[in-house]
Structure formats: structure tokens, C-alpha cells
Nucleic acid binder design. Structure first.
Lengths: 166, 166
DNA sequence: GTGTCAATTGACACCGTGTAAAGTCAACCA
DNA sequence: TGGTTGACTTTACACGGTGTCAATTGACAC
């Protein structure tokens, strides 16, 4: 909190006039980033896609490219969530929203009959959601030094391999 | 530290007689778990595999089944690593060891000519290592409620889809 | 001018980590 | 048997971070 106050050019106590506690500050920061980076607009192409395959590709691209933009605040919230109930809940809510997007893409694939045999929609949704987790991005881009493009190409491939028929 | 001391039935200060600080305690706990759960023995079938494909399957199975056993201490070390240099280093070292196993499996695949065209050995190693991360296990098993078997089957499939030719 | 509002300063309580010192107790040994 | 050693306990404290509280300042609106 001291560091943030210093960066913001206000006193540490002033932060508590705006946010009840550290967790709420980061929750607000995450929401602010969502607005700043127009998450909803980025997901529009996915919603507009005609086929399930197109929808999957558009969703993976939108979310995969969104991760680096919000990684800072998102990561903080995740780490906070390991010890703070409220932070964990806030992040879980956020992830639930994202999972709805996954479910919609999976539903479109199922409608087209493109879903891999032996995979339920729920399983496919879980799988896509897991492949698009912040963790996998961190492993490949941050830890292994992959470019964003290489990461995205590979996740597209993985998503197709995991969900599609054939 | 208080909680641990209570569980152990000793005073909090006694812990500091055995470990210089909290981080070192958890590093020691992780090593103790490795010994308790015989990580080296579990990886033996992978090293003994004839073909690259067999080696990949054996390695994925061994590590994938190892994760739940060490998840408690491993997770603690990971979380600690977010704020503690030493913990981060300890975990990174551990991950480097694991990555060597990935590299060996990938090398066996390359030797057999089974590696997917357009994928270098280094990229394939990064990819396998990322698929076998604790994070993906947490997403599917802990967050989505998958069984260990369902997780393992899916990761086997993902690994094959990501690395193999065809 | 007065009231209001945002922010400041300074103080403090609480908790967790880590350090330090003095005391207890049992085992071992000459 | 008495003395030493070593592991552990109790008590105390320093430090840093979070969160609370009260008094004060300064600007702006009416």
C-alpha cells in the first residue's frame, strides 16, 4: 500500500478513503483494466462468428491476446486469492464469466457437429477454459520466452486438437 | 509458523532451531516429499522405454500421477515464490529438473522421427513442460472437479496432439 | 464567513517473521 | 555422583505491513 501510494503521489492513508482494503483496491484495478482494454469489444468477433470453428478461433485469439494486457493486475489478484477469501472469490467470478465464453464456443461447435466424439460439452468447456488459463500463458511466454504470436498459434492448435473431431 | 509448530507439538521457536526461516522449511518439506514418494523410482519406466512414444506416455503418466502427491508442499512453495526470491529459485530448480525429463522424452521422439514437423526440440520441450505444469492439474482436477484418471487421459491426448506428427 | 469535502499528518493496535537470552530437563560420561 | 552437553521451552523484543482513528489543513461552494 505504501508503494502504491507513493506511485500515485498521495498518502498511504488516502488510499483507505477510496478503497476499504488492499483486496478491494486490486479488484477495482482489475475492473478498471477491463474497461480500459475493452474486453467486451474484443470478444465481439467471437460472438458474431458464423461457424463453431470460427467462434472457437476468434475466442481463443481475443482472450489469448487479452491476457498480457491484464496480466499484472490479474496475477496480483490470483496471488492475493491464495490467502484472501474475498480476492479468491473475485477472481473466481471473473473466471466464471470467461468460462461462459468458452461454453458458448463449445455450444457452437456442438451445434455444428464438430465436437470430438466422447467429449461432453461440459468437459470440452473445462478443457478450453484450462488451456486459456493465465497459467499456461505464464509458462510459455514468461517462463519459456515464447513470443505472443507463438503462444497464440500453439494454443489455437491445442484447442483444436482437444475439442474438434478428427 | 505458529500453526506448523502447534501441529508438530513443539514451540514456534523450536522450528527455528531446525530451519533458518519459513522458506527453508518448505524447501526441506518438498525434498522430504520427493523422498517419501519415490519420484526417481516412478520415472524409471519412462527412462526404460524403447520408443519415443512409449517414453512420452510413461513420462506423462509418472509426472501426472505425482502432482497430486506433492501438490500441498509444491503449491506452498510456488505461492511463497511470488514474494520470496529463495523460494522462487528453489521451485525454478525443481522445474528445471522436470524439464530435463521432458527434453529426454522429446529427444526420443525426435530420434524416432515422430516429432511434429515445424516444431523444434526446444519448443516441444517447452510445450510438454507447460502441459504438465501444476497449474493445468489444478484447473482440471481442483477447479473443475475432474478425476485424476480423466485428467491424465486428457493430458496424454494433449501431449500427443501437441508433439506428434500427424 | 461558514460548511463541506478531500487529503494530510501522526499515532496506534494487531499480526507474523525472525532474533535473542535465560531456564528446564534428560542423557551421557568421567 | 556431579558435570557437561544438547534439544527444547518460555519470555521478550525488533521490525514491517495492514488497517483504524483523530486532529488538522486547504480549497471550493453557497
Amino acid at each position: 500500500m505504501s508503494d502504491i501510494a507513493k506511485k500515485a503521489g498521495v498518502s498511504r492513508q488516502a488510499l483507505y478513503l477510496h478503497f476499504p482494503n488492499r483486496t478491494e483496491l486490486f479488484i477495482a484495478a482489475t475492473k478498471a483494466k477491463d474497461a480500459e482494454f475493452h474486453i467486451d469489444a474484443r470478444l465481439a468477433p467471437s460472438r458474431a462468428a458464423k461457424t463453431g470453428r470460427e467462434r472457437l478461433a476468434a475466442f481463443v485469439e481475443a482472450w489469448g491476446n487479452y491476457i498480457p494486457d491484464i496480466h499484472g493486475v490479474a496475477k496480483t489478484l490470483i496471488v492475493l486469492g491464495e490467502t484472501d477469501e474475498d480476492a479468491a472469490h473475485a477472481w473466481a467470478e471473473r473466471m466464471a464469466d470467461m468460462k461462459e465464453g468458452c461454453a458458448a464456443a463449445v455450444a457452437a461447435l456442438a451445434r455444428d457437429g464438430d465436437l470430438r466424439p466422447g467429449l461432453t460439452e461440459a468437459q470440452a468447456t473445462d478443457l478450453l477454459w484450462s488451456l486459456l488459463s493465465v497459467g499456461l500463458w505464464e509458462r510459455l511466454v514468461r517462463d519459456c520466452g515464447w513470443t505472443q504470436k507463438a503462444y497464440l498459434d500453439e494454443v489455437q492448435r491445442l484447442a483444436r486438437a482437444a475439442l474438434l473431431d478428427g
